Computed example of a mutant assay.
Amino acid sequence: MQKDQLFTRRGALLAGAAAVGAAGTASVFARGTGAGTPAGPGAPAPGAPAHRLPMKPSAYRLQPLTGYGPPRGAAARTPVRSEPLLRITGRGRAMVLTFDDGPDPRYTPDILDTLAAYDVHAMFFVCGEMAAHHPELLARMADEGHTVGNHTWSHPLLTKLTRRQIRSEMTRTSEVIENAYGERPRWFRAPYGAWNRAAFQLGSELGMESLAWTVDTLDWTSPGTGTIVDRVENGAAPGVVVLSHDAGGDRTQSVRALRRYLPQLLDSGYHITVPRRQHT
């Protein structure tokens, strides 16, 4: 683009910017009531840690020019919570499906294929060391409308780390997600469900809400495909957030279970959705 063309474009955009108002902000999640209780640092929920892989340098991605758009209102501050969010609210018969510890090229593509077959979106809480090796899967998630959250770099027990270590786990993962997915994550989930004050505070500083779950499939224990299906169907209710895994071990049962319970949920009138936070 020639220099005079760039200045002409910028001038035209800035001239029309004054007519545009800033959008309000809202949050679609609330503290859970009824089903489930928040996981605290004293009793972390079980889960399988992601495979530790050697770190690879992230590919540099050019960012679009900034400053050539309408003025934006001040971003709403992400609240510092004392317990994670557990369920969605105010959306009728809506549920959220979440998958942790990936992406894993052995299982994540099959899960994405099933979701695409039924035209539904899910959340993927990814580990940075896995995402750094498989950025193409995060790019696919972005293309297909899924939400990607931060699940730390190496899946540690945060309650055993220093504040500096927790920040590093979160920040490195957010950077990898931004490079591969196209934007920084707005959601965070602590490994094993073990939050502490530092995790809430640092997550807030990085613009992330803390999301837990209301239905744990315990698929990481390999209980059998039928058992996983039963746990999802028995726990199904408006506002429920389901926890499953697409990495961290053999997830064949998780893949097969999704193929069975997803169409049954849809036939029962449930709407599978993803969170839509409007503030950054």
Rank of each mutant, 00 (worst) to 15 (best):
G47P: 08
Y270C: 11
T225A: 07
G145N: 09
Q253C: 03
R231M: 07
F99D: 01
T98M: 06
H134T: 01
G128P: 04
H146Q: 04
D100R: 09
D100A: 01
M130T: 07
Y261S: 03
T152H: 07
I272A: 08
A122I: 05
P71L: 15
G102H: 05
P156N: 09
T273R: 12
L265S: 06
G269R: 11
G21P: 14
R251V: 05
T273E: 10
E205P: 08
D113H: 09
P103A: 12
S268W: 05
E144V: 02
F188K: 03
A132F: 01
R164S: 15
L112T: 08
R9E: 09
K56N: 15
Q165M: 09
S82D: 15
L218M: 14
A94C: 10
V20R: 09
P191Q: 03
P46C: 14
P135T: 10
V274K: 13
A212Q: 06
A116G: 10
T252E: 12
H151S: 04
S27D: 02
N196S: 03
D250N: 01
C127P: 10
R260V: 14
L266N: 07
V232E: 04
P49C: 04
A59C: 06
G226L: 01
R184E: 08
T159H: 05
R81G: 06
L157M: 03
Q264T: 15
Q201F: 08
R77I: 13
A94L: 04
A198R: 02
P84F: 00
L65D: 10
F200R: 03
R87D: 12
N179D: 13
Q253T: 08
A116S: 04
T280G: 10
A139H: 13
G149C: 00
M1P: 09
G24T: 13
D100V: 06
R93Q: 10
T173G: 00
A76K: 02
L65M: 12
L97C: 05
P79K: 10
T173R: 01
L62N: 11
R197Y: 11
Y261M: 09
P71A: 14
G92I: 01
A19D: 01
V241H: 03
S254H: 11
L86K: 09
S82W: 15
G193Q: 05
D246C: 09
R72D: 13
S58M: 00
A23L: 14
A12K: 05
L6F: 02
R72Q: 10
P135Y: 04
F188G: 07
H271R: 15
G92V: 03
M130F: 03
G36N: 13
Y107F: 15
P38G: 08
